[in-house]
Design a binder for these strands. Sequence first.
DNA 1: TAACCATAGTTACAGTCTCTAACAGAAGCG
DNA 2: CGCTTCTGTTAGAGACTGTAACTATGGTTA
Lengths: 233, 233
Amino acid sequence: MTTGGPRARYREQTRTEIKEIALRQLAEGGISAVALTRIAKELELSGPALYRYFANRDDLLGSLIGDAYQDLAAAIGEAAQASAKYTPRHRLLSLAGAHRAWAVAEPHRYLMIAGTPLPGYSAPPETLAQARAALGPFLPLFASAQPISAVLPVAEQMDTWVHQEPAVAAWVAQYLDTTDGADHALAGAVMAWTRIHGVVSLEVEGLYSGMGHQPQTLLEVEMNTLADTFRLG
Amino acid sequence: MTTGGPRARYREQTRTEIKEIALRQLAEGGISAVALTRIAKELELSGPALYRYFANRDDLLGSLIGDAYQDLAAAIGEAAQASAKYTPRHRLLSLAGAHRAWAVAEPHRYLMIAGTPLPGYSAPPETLAQARAALGPFLPLFASAQPISAVLPVAEQMDTWVHQEPAVAAWVAQYLDTTDGADHALAGAVMAWTRIHGVVSLEVEGLYSGMGHQPQTLLEVEMNTLADTFRLG
DNA sequence: TAACCATAGTTACAGTCTCTAACAGAAGCG
DNA sequence: CGCTTCTGTTAGAGACTGTAACTATGGTTA
């Protein structure tokens, strides 16, 4: 679609080069280490030239955030494919493990999407879709679940949500054959996401340092107890 | 202790004035909005004067982080006192609610301690103690718990931890009369902390926006299921 | 009381960074 | 071939952190 002339091609290539250097800076020094001037220097360009490719620094970071979301969603999607034939409980552990593995491998990118939001940055509408792409593979695991009654308050809120917003219903329909059990599926997905984020963000932020447990083990326990709560097989 | 002459008093007062302005900047624009030059301008001082009071920007932020930890720990401690006579399950909900209430009331301060770590900032040793002060009140709730077997992997890791590090044993002893059940207590506290962080950080970071549930409800469900897992009364 | 000196403040400046303005050259397109 | 658009340049404004060198002041002490 954007395959215009050779000019558009060159433009796209320069954009990716810029992003590659930005990713390296991100990996080395965190988000605040991403500096347009130093990227320009490395490309042997002069500072303002970069503004031909990204409107400003937030635009560049937003692009990185979008890529990161997509990568994470892809990693989870692959795990979902690979584990499709196993039990829901097994698949839940698999998806959670894939989520954590990605985050641990790319801590700064994970923090960019799951950590403190940028000061003035407001996520573009696509972000919502990308977040839902990452969450979607969790839905089928809980579709036919029979959660214990303690979960009902959340399931009820999910029920009204899916009935009020057609976009949500459409999203759920992508991952579920029937819309039956959408409330349980959404409740399970949100709770899984929440617990995974709890374990993984504390690990990646280094707040578990000096504590005597392995995040991997904790994550497995969290997912197993969640599977119990939803009475997964 | 630091009550030296009048000079030390004035110094301390200026430090708190600086921190007050910094807190306002933090509340208004997040951590990146805390700027020494603008603090100086507001105090009608010239920029470099502030370096008499804080070695550098990280030093100032570190001081704010320490205060925030202490405030959060105090809020949780108060909730523990106020709910001391109730059931462990009720107390767990109470402590979690206090944690969340503090975070929602002071989102930027919460993100400062629980969010993306500062680039070059490495927490001073006191931070560990402060984190443990916030976690301590959770310990007694789980001291005599009989968790389901799924939790055992974590409890075992906690057991070796408390046996290997005397500092941890001492910390646990502050909140538990007996060191019996320290493994369950630590496992429960860490899991509670993890789940609370999961819910609250997603809420504060705005990642729940556009989702059809109330964080408060979700937090209660998370704590109730945790209480189930530990078979709390 | 007078001298002293640590402290709190100053200006000047170096260096980094974002981003705008004005302009120059070159590649593509009709 | 000429026009236009895109890509790049230099110059510079403005915000920020942090250092260096210097000055004034007020508490402490002989």
